[in-house]
Amino acid sequence: MATASPDRIPLAVALRLTSVLLFAGMNTLIKLSEAAGASLGEILFFRQAGAAALMVVVISSGPGMRSVATRRMPAHILRAVIGLSAMALTFTTILALPLAESTTIGFTMPIFATILGAIVLREPTGWHRWGAVLMGFAGVLIVAQPGTGHFPLIGAITGLSAAFLTASVSILLRKLSRSESTTTTVFWFSTLSLIPLGIVYAIVAQMHAPLVWLLLAGVGLLGGAAQLAMTGALRFGPVSVVVPMDYSSLLWATMFGWLVFGVLPDAWTWVGAPVIIASGLYIVWREHVRRRVETAQAVVEG
């Protein structure tokens, strides 16, 4: 992917912030849908169906369906399996925890990405980033307060598992991006996910009141639009610039949790969240520094 020009960075930041807001809205609708009687299987199906529909519209009205042809279908299938598992765990966490707490646990993704990058991709990882990893996990312990019983254990387990699988997806996407466009990757993830989710939906589908159908449709539309905005941000700006925008999701999660559900984060979340966020930001910054050094060395050697 070419480096985005400076005049497009504001657009990249705006798109990423938009995606964060849309995802926060989607998470709110997920909790409302479940409270109104929708099952996790139904919510997952509508989430991916909405994303797939939007992708088909965008591709058909733009580059055309031929643009998503691929020779790496096994890799896309693996990405769909891992990504769908991560999504199921993420939604389970959203349903088990208040919005702010589930969002905070999700911030551990860069921590797991650092660990997997060092193990799987053999990326050089110095003591700076390992220190940030330890600091991030310390933040998780502050938020979860294990042994006190104030934080549901299932939420902590599913949240950390979702972050680990999401980090695994990021490692896989680094390999896929060498030959596949972002549009191709998103399209195949959305459409391939509908195969197992269609089977699940056929089993768990039930009749609902009109409001529930509207909520489920909203989950799909907001999720699909958020996914497009998120990937568009990476098209117009570097990762080191756009990814830190994700931490603004805690603000939206706190606001929606208060306005819609009347719940505010507890004191330990306010203490631990900044620790986790600082850890993630430092990891992103160190990655930016490492790539800048590698680029400079390549120019000198060239």
Rank of each mutant, 00 (worst) to 15 (best):
A2K: 13
A2N: 15
R8I: 05
I9Y: 07
L11R: 04
L11N: 01
A12I: 04
A12D: 02
V13Y: 03
V13S: 04
R16M: 15
L17P: 00
T18G: 13
L21Q: 05
L22W: 01
F23M: 12
M26H: 01
N27S: 11
T28A: 12
E34G: 15
E34M: 10
L40V: 06
G41C: 09
E42T: 09
L44N: 02
F45A: 03
Q48C: 15
A49S: 12
G50I: 02
G62D: 12
S67T: 08
A69N: 06
R71K: 15
I77C: 11
L78N: 00
I82T: 00
L84T: 10
S85W: 01
A86S: 13
A86W: 01
M87P: 03
F91D: 01
F91P: 04
T92H: 06
T92A: 12
T93M: 15
I94F: 13
L95G: 11
L95S: 15
L97W: 03
E101I: 07
S102G: 05
T104N: 05
T104E: 01
T108V: 14
A113W: 02
V120F: 13
R129S: 12
W130P: 00
A132H: 08
V133I: 11
L134N: 11
M135L: 14
G139C: 10
G139Y: 07
V140R: 03
L141P: 08
A144V: 13
Q145K: 14
G147P: 06
H150S: 11
H150I: 15
H150Y: 02
P152M: 13
G155Q: 01
A156C: 09
I157V: 13
T158G: 09
T158P: 08
G159P: 05
S161H: 00
A162Y: 01
A163V: 06
A163C: 11
L165P: 02
L165Q: 03
S168D: 00
S170A: 15
L173W: 02
L176E: 06
S177H: 08
S177V: 04
S181H: 05
T182Y: 06
T183S: 15
T184F: 01
T191H: 07
L192G: 02
I195G: 09
I195A: 08
G198D: 10
V200W: 13
A202D: 14
A202E: 15
A205N: 14
A205T: 14
H208T: 14
A209M: 12
P210Q: 05
L214T: 12
G220L: 05
G224W: 05
Q227I: 07
A233G: 10
G237Y: 02
V239I: 15
S240F: 06
P244H: 12
S249T: 05
L250F: 07
W252A: 02
F256N: 02
W258E: 04
L259I: 14
F261H: 09
D266E: 13
T269Y: 06
W270G: 13
G272Y: 03
A273G: 09
I277R: 07
V284F: 06
R292C: 06
V293M: 11
V293P: 02
E294P: 00
A296C: 14
A298D: 12
A298H: 09
V300M: 08
